[in-house]
Amino acid sequence: MRHRKFSLIFTYMLATLIVIIWMFPFVVSLFTAVKPLDELMSQKGLWLPPKSVHLENFKRAWTEANMKRYFLNTLIITAPSVLGALFISSLAAFALAWYEFKLNKLILFIFVGGMLIPFQMLLIPVYRFSVNVGIYDTYLGIILFHISFQLGFCTFFLRNFMKTIPRSIFEAALIDGAGHFTIYRKIVMPLVVPALSALGILEFTWIWNDYLWSLVLIQSDMKKPVTLGLTTLQGQWVSDWSIIAAAALIAAVVPITVFLIFQRYFIEGLTVGAVKG
Protein backbone atom coordinates (compact mmCIF):
# COMPACT_ATOMS: atom_id res chain seq x y z
CA MET A 1 0.00 0.00 0.00
CA ARG A 2 2.89 2.32 0.69
CA HIS A 3 3.94 1.79 -2.88
CA ARG A 4 0.56 3.05 -4.04
CA LYS A 5 0.79 6.13 -1.90
CA PHE A 6 4.22 6.92 -3.21
CA SER A 7 3.04 6.54 -6.74
CA LEU A 8 0.11 8.86 -6.06
CA ILE A 9 2.39 11.55 -4.71
CA PHE A 10 4.59 11.13 -7.72
CA THR A 11 1.59 11.50 -9.98
CA TYR A 12 0.51 14.66 -8.24
CA MET A 13 3.95 16.18 -8.43
CA LEU A 14 4.44 15.40 -12.08
CA ALA A 15 0.93 16.53 -13.00
CA THR A 16 1.36 19.75 -11.07
CA LEU A 17 4.68 20.43 -12.75
CA ILE A 18 3.14 19.92 -16.16
CA VAL A 19 0.25 22.21 -15.37
CA ILE A 20 2.60 24.90 -14.08
CA ILE A 21 4.57 24.76 -17.30
CA TRP A 22 1.36 24.80 -19.30
CA MET A 23 -0.05 27.78 -17.45
CA PHE A 24 3.17 29.78 -17.58
CA PRO A 25 2.33 31.58 -20.86
CA PHE A 26 -1.12 32.51 -19.55
CA VAL A 27 0.30 33.85 -16.33
CA VAL A 28 2.88 35.89 -18.22
CA SER A 29 0.15 37.47 -20.34
CA LEU A 30 -1.90 38.25 -17.28
CA PHE A 31 1.08 39.86 -15.57
CA THR A 32 1.82 41.85 -18.68
CA ALA A 33 -1.76 43.05 -18.89
CA VAL A 34 -1.89 44.46 -15.37
CA LYS A 35 1.54 46.06 -15.20
CA PRO A 36 1.82 49.74 -15.95
CA LEU A 37 4.09 50.48 -18.89
CA ASP A 38 7.03 51.85 -16.95
CA GLU A 39 7.10 48.85 -14.65
CA LEU A 40 7.00 46.60 -17.69
CA MET A 41 10.04 48.28 -19.13
CA SER A 42 12.06 48.83 -15.98
CA GLN A 43 11.59 45.45 -14.40
CA LYS A 44 13.49 43.52 -17.06
CA GLY A 45 11.46 40.38 -16.87
CA LEU A 46 7.99 39.60 -18.10
CA TRP A 47 7.73 36.57 -15.90
CA LEU A 48 7.94 38.54 -12.67
CA PRO A 49 4.66 39.22 -10.89
CA PRO A 50 3.47 42.82 -10.97
CA LYS A 51 4.32 45.10 -8.07
CA SER A 52 0.98 46.74 -8.34
CA VAL A 53 -2.11 45.76 -10.28
CA HIS A 54 -3.49 48.15 -12.85
CA LEU A 55 -6.77 47.16 -14.34
CA GLU A 56 -7.23 50.22 -16.51
CA ASN A 57 -5.38 48.53 -19.36
CA PHE A 58 -8.44 46.35 -19.82
CA LYS A 59 -10.65 49.40 -19.85
CA ARG A 60 -8.47 51.14 -22.38
CA ALA A 61 -8.36 48.09 -24.60
CA TRP A 62 -12.12 47.82 -24.36
CA THR A 63 -12.97 51.44 -25.08
CA GLU A 64 -10.08 52.89 -27.06
CA ALA A 65 -9.77 49.85 -29.24
CA ASN A 66 -13.45 49.55 -29.96
CA MET A 67 -13.37 45.99 -28.66
CA LYS A 68 -17.07 46.24 -27.86
CA ARG A 69 -17.95 46.60 -31.51
CA TYR A 70 -15.58 43.81 -32.50
CA PHE A 71 -17.22 41.56 -29.96
CA LEU A 72 -20.65 42.24 -31.34
CA ASN A 73 -19.41 41.55 -34.86
CA THR A 74 -17.94 38.25 -33.85
CA LEU A 75 -21.28 37.26 -32.38
CA ILE A 76 -23.14 38.36 -35.49
CA ILE A 77 -20.81 36.24 -37.60
CA THR A 78 -20.39 33.25 -35.33
CA ALA A 79 -23.97 32.44 -34.31
CA PRO A 80 -25.52 32.04 -37.78
CA SER A 81 -22.38 30.35 -39.08
CA VAL A 82 -22.55 27.65 -36.42
CA LEU A 83 -26.29 27.11 -36.77
CA GLY A 84 -26.09 27.08 -40.54
CA ALA A 85 -23.20 24.63 -40.60
CA LEU A 86 -24.98 22.30 -38.20
CA PHE A 87 -28.23 22.34 -40.13
CA ILE A 88 -26.84 21.98 -43.61
CA SER A 89 -24.29 19.35 -42.70
CA SER A 90 -26.96 17.33 -40.91
CA LEU A 91 -28.77 17.01 -44.25
CA ALA A 92 -25.66 15.67 -45.92
CA ALA A 93 -24.82 13.43 -43.00
CA PHE A 94 -28.34 12.00 -43.00
CA ALA A 95 -28.04 11.06 -46.65
CA LEU A 96 -24.59 9.58 -46.27
CA ALA A 97 -25.34 7.64 -43.10
CA TRP A 98 -28.62 5.99 -44.02
CA TYR A 99 -28.79 5.53 -47.75
CA GLU A 100 -26.85 3.22 -49.94
CA PHE A 101 -26.19 4.70 -53.29
CA LYS A 102 -23.45 4.61 -55.84
CA LEU A 103 -21.68 7.85 -55.00
CA ASN A 104 -21.96 7.55 -51.23
CA LYS A 105 -18.33 6.77 -50.51
CA LEU A 106 -17.08 9.19 -53.12
CA ILE A 107 -19.10 12.07 -51.72
CA LEU A 108 -17.99 11.29 -48.21
CA PHE A 109 -14.45 11.17 -49.51
CA ILE A 110 -14.87 14.61 -51.07
CA PHE A 111 -16.22 16.11 -47.86
CA VAL A 112 -13.43 14.72 -45.74
CA GLY A 113 -10.76 15.46 -48.30
CA GLY A 114 -11.90 19.05 -48.43
CA MET A 115 -11.67 19.39 -44.68
CA LEU A 116 -8.03 18.31 -44.68
CA ILE A 117 -6.65 20.29 -47.58
CA PRO A 118 -4.27 23.15 -46.94
CA PHE A 119 -6.78 25.98 -46.75
CA GLN A 120 -4.38 28.33 -48.49
CA MET A 121 -5.53 26.65 -51.69
CA LEU A 122 -8.84 28.43 -51.34
CA LEU A 123 -7.62 31.89 -50.48
CA ILE A 124 -7.38 33.54 -53.86
CA PRO A 125 -10.41 32.00 -55.58
CA VAL A 126 -12.72 32.51 -52.59
CA TYR A 127 -11.74 36.13 -52.38
CA ARG A 128 -12.35 36.66 -56.07
CA PHE A 129 -15.64 34.84 -55.93
CA SER A 130 -16.94 36.92 -53.03
CA VAL A 131 -15.99 40.09 -54.79
CA ASN A 132 -17.60 39.09 -58.07
CA VAL A 133 -20.85 38.02 -56.45
CA GLY A 134 -20.99 41.17 -54.37
CA ILE A 135 -20.79 39.58 -50.93
CA TYR A 136 -17.31 40.82 -50.19
CA ASP A 137 -17.12 42.82 -46.97
CA THR A 138 -20.57 41.69 -45.84
CA TYR A 139 -21.55 39.56 -42.88
CA LEU A 140 -23.40 37.32 -45.30
CA GLY A 141 -20.27 36.68 -47.32
CA ILE A 142 -18.17 35.52 -44.43
CA ILE A 143 -21.05 33.58 -42.86
CA LEU A 144 -21.72 31.65 -46.06
CA PHE A 145 -18.06 30.90 -46.39
CA HIS A 146 -17.73 29.68 -42.81
CA ILE A 147 -20.74 27.42 -43.24
CA SER A 148 -19.43 25.90 -46.44
CA PHE A 149 -15.88 25.55 -45.21
CA GLN A 150 -17.02 23.73 -42.06
CA LEU A 151 -19.36 21.39 -43.95
CA GLY A 152 -16.60 18.86 -44.49
CA PHE A 153 -15.85 18.32 -40.85
CA CYS A 154 -19.46 18.64 -39.66
CA THR A 155 -20.78 16.17 -42.21
CA PHE A 156 -18.07 13.67 -41.41
CA PHE A 157 -18.70 14.07 -37.71
CA LEU A 158 -22.49 13.79 -37.83
CA ARG A 159 -22.47 10.96 -40.30
CA ASN A 160 -20.20 8.95 -38.02
CA PHE A 161 -22.48 9.61 -35.11
CA MET A 162 -25.58 8.64 -37.06
CA LYS A 163 -23.85 5.41 -38.05
CA THR A 164 -23.86 4.41 -34.39
CA ILE A 165 -27.66 4.63 -34.19
CA PRO A 166 -29.22 1.22 -34.74
CA ARG A 167 -30.42 0.85 -38.30
CA SER A 168 -33.61 -0.86 -37.21
CA ILE A 169 -35.06 2.46 -36.04
CA PHE A 170 -34.75 3.89 -39.50
CA GLU A 171 -36.06 0.80 -41.26
CA ALA A 172 -39.04 0.44 -38.94
CA ALA A 173 -40.04 4.02 -39.61
CA LEU A 174 -39.82 3.49 -43.36
CA ILE A 175 -42.02 0.42 -43.13
CA ASP A 176 -44.51 2.44 -41.12
CA GLY A 177 -44.71 4.68 -44.12
CA ALA A 178 -42.98 7.75 -42.72
CA GLY A 179 -41.64 10.18 -45.31
CA HIS A 180 -37.92 10.60 -45.67
CA PHE A 181 -37.88 14.15 -44.43
CA THR A 182 -40.11 13.21 -41.51
CA ILE A 183 -37.66 10.53 -40.51
CA TYR A 184 -34.87 13.07 -40.71
CA ARG A 185 -36.75 15.66 -38.69
CA LYS A 186 -38.76 13.63 -36.22
CA ILE A 187 -36.68 10.53 -35.62
CA VAL A 188 -33.03 11.03 -36.44
CA MET A 189 -32.49 14.65 -35.44
CA PRO A 190 -33.72 14.23 -31.84
CA LEU A 191 -31.33 11.32 -31.45
CA VAL A 192 -28.43 13.41 -32.75
CA VAL A 193 -28.84 16.25 -30.28
CA PRO A 194 -25.87 15.25 -28.11
CA ALA A 195 -23.63 15.14 -31.16
CA LEU A 196 -25.01 18.46 -32.35
CA SER A 197 -24.20 20.11 -29.04
CA ALA A 198 -20.68 18.76 -29.03
CA LEU A 199 -20.16 19.80 -32.62
CA GLY A 200 -21.76 23.17 -32.02
CA ILE A 201 -19.42 24.01 -29.17
CA LEU A 202 -16.43 22.98 -31.22
CA GLU A 203 -17.52 24.96 -34.25
CA PHE A 204 -18.29 27.94 -32.08
CA THR A 205 -14.72 28.17 -30.82
CA TRP A 206 -13.26 27.59 -34.26
CA ILE A 207 -15.31 30.22 -35.97
CA TRP A 208 -14.93 32.60 -33.05
CA ASN A 209 -11.16 32.24 -33.36
CA ASP A 210 -10.98 32.64 -37.11
CA TYR A 211 -8.56 35.29 -38.25
CA LEU A 212 -7.35 34.61 -41.76
CA TRP A 213 -10.72 34.48 -43.48
CA SER A 214 -11.99 37.62 -41.84
CA LEU A 215 -8.79 39.31 -42.91
CA VAL A 216 -9.42 38.33 -46.50
CA LEU A 217 -13.20 38.76 -46.67
CA ILE A 218 -13.90 41.76 -44.43
CA GLN A 219 -12.50 45.24 -44.83
CA SER A 220 -14.75 47.64 -42.90
CA ASP A 221 -13.73 48.54 -39.38
CA MET A 222 -17.40 48.33 -38.46
CA LYS A 223 -17.61 44.66 -39.40
CA LYS A 224 -14.30 43.32 -38.13
CA PRO A 225 -14.44 40.47 -35.62
CA VAL A 226 -12.46 40.37 -32.43
CA THR A 227 -9.39 38.57 -33.76
CA LEU A 228 -8.98 41.08 -36.55
CA GLY A 229 -9.57 43.88 -34.09
CA LEU A 230 -6.76 42.51 -31.97
CA THR A 231 -4.27 42.68 -34.80
CA THR A 232 -5.43 46.15 -35.74
CA LEU A 233 -4.63 47.01 -32.17
CA GLN A 234 -1.20 45.41 -32.45
CA GLY A 235 -0.44 47.76 -35.30
CA GLN A 236 -1.54 50.72 -33.25
CA TRP A 237 0.07 49.99 -29.92
CA VAL A 238 3.09 48.04 -31.07
CA SER A 239 5.24 48.89 -28.12
CA ASP A 240 2.52 49.18 -25.51
CA TRP A 241 2.45 45.54 -24.51
CA SER A 242 0.07 45.97 -21.58
CA ILE A 243 -2.79 47.09 -23.77
CA ILE A 244 -2.22 44.35 -26.30
CA ALA A 245 -2.02 41.78 -23.52
CA ALA A 246 -5.27 43.06 -22.06
CA ALA A 247 -6.94 42.92 -25.45
CA ALA A 248 -5.60 39.42 -26.11
CA LEU A 249 -7.05 38.22 -22.83
CA ILE A 250 -10.36 39.89 -23.61
CA ALA A 251 -10.40 38.10 -26.96
CA ALA A 252 -9.68 34.80 -25.22
CA VAL A 253 -12.27 35.14 -22.51
CA VAL A 254 -15.32 33.96 -24.42
CA PRO A 255 -13.90 30.76 -25.94
CA ILE A 256 -12.34 29.86 -22.60
CA THR A 257 -15.60 30.43 -20.74
CA VAL A 258 -17.59 28.48 -23.26
CA PHE A 259 -15.09 25.70 -23.00
CA LEU A 260 -15.18 25.64 -19.20
CA ILE A 261 -18.96 25.47 -19.16
CA PHE A 262 -19.38 22.95 -21.94
CA GLN A 263 -16.16 21.09 -21.42
CA ARG A 264 -17.67 17.67 -21.70
CA TYR A 265 -19.24 18.42 -25.07
CA PHE A 266 -16.12 20.04 -26.34
CA ILE A 267 -13.87 17.11 -25.63
CA GLU A 268 -16.46 14.65 -26.81
CA GLY A 269 -16.73 16.62 -30.01
CA LEU A 270 -13.03 16.50 -30.70
CA THR A 271 -12.66 12.83 -29.94
CA VAL A 272 -15.83 11.51 -31.52
CA GLY A 273 -15.02 13.49 -34.64
CA ALA A 274 -11.57 12.09 -34.98
CA VAL A 275 -11.40 8.74 -33.29
CA LYS A 276 -14.68 7.10 -34.04
CA GLY A 277 -13.96 7.24 -37.76
Binding site: V131, D137, Q219
Partner: peptide, 25 residues
Protein backbone atom coordinates in the same frame (compact mmCIF):
# COMPACT_ATOMS: atom_id res chain seq x y z
CA UNK B 1 -16.65 59.74 -45.03
CA UNK B 2 -16.16 56.19 -43.78
CA UNK B 3 -12.59 55.55 -42.71
CA UNK B 4 -11.36 51.98 -42.33
CA UNK B 5 -8.02 51.79 -40.59
CA UNK B 6 -5.70 48.83 -41.01
CA UNK B 7 -2.45 47.85 -39.39
CA UNK B 8 0.35 48.99 -41.65
CA UNK B 9 1.60 45.59 -42.71
CA UNK B 10 -1.91 44.23 -43.30
CA UNK B 11 -2.71 47.23 -45.43
CA UNK B 12 0.21 46.60 -47.75
CA UNK B 13 -1.01 43.07 -48.31
CA UNK B 14 -4.64 43.94 -48.82
CA UNK B 15 -4.34 46.97 -51.07
CA UNK B 16 -3.79 44.86 -54.16
CA UNK B 17 -6.93 42.88 -53.57
CA UNK B 18 -8.99 46.01 -53.05
CA UNK B 19 -7.74 47.64 -56.21
CA UNK B 20 -8.85 44.61 -58.13
CA UNK B 21 -12.31 44.39 -56.71
CA UNK B 22 -15.50 45.92 -58.05
CA UNK B 23 -16.06 46.95 -54.44
CA UNK B 24 -12.91 49.02 -54.34
CA UNK B 25 -12.77 51.74 -51.70
Amino acid sequence: IVVNTFAHEDFKTLLRTWLNSPNAP
